[in-house]
Amino acid sequence: MSLGLFYALVGGGLFALGLAGLILQPRLLGKILAFNILGSGAFLVLVGLAQRGGTPDPVPQAMVLTGIVVAVAATALALALTRRLADLSGAAVLPEDDARAPANPRGPDGD
């Protein structure tokens, strides 16, 4: 097994781990970390699988750099929303009632 394929398999494992965490973690901070693990898994597959005979391919490296910038931006937004939600509701978890969307009869009127 080449080193590149090994990286790719580890990347696949991280992706699966992140996916499970994103769905199963109740806390938002846990979900955000899980998303970052999932993303790292995809990046590792991208650079690992693209190696030909041990020579790194520069194109996926550039893609991963772009991907990291995107992931940082997404993480920042997620953290900002989590803080706001924790300030408003006192807990950094997604409220249950908003998932099943029928309107909350006690909620405020208007838009």
């Binding site: 996916l19 994103l22 938002l28 979900k31 998303f35 999932l38 997404a74 937004l77 997620a78 929303l81 989590t82 706001r84 939600l85 408003l88 509701s89 997604l94 409220p95 908003d98 998932a99 909350n104 909620g107």
Partner: peptide, 18 residues
């Protein structure tokens, strides 16, 4: 910035990132 909107946005963000 309302609680309902922020919670909905958070849920939306997680879904779209996944």
């Amino acid at each position: 910035g309302e609680r309902r909107a922020v919670a909905a946005a958070m849920r939306y963000l997680l879904a779209t990132l996944l």
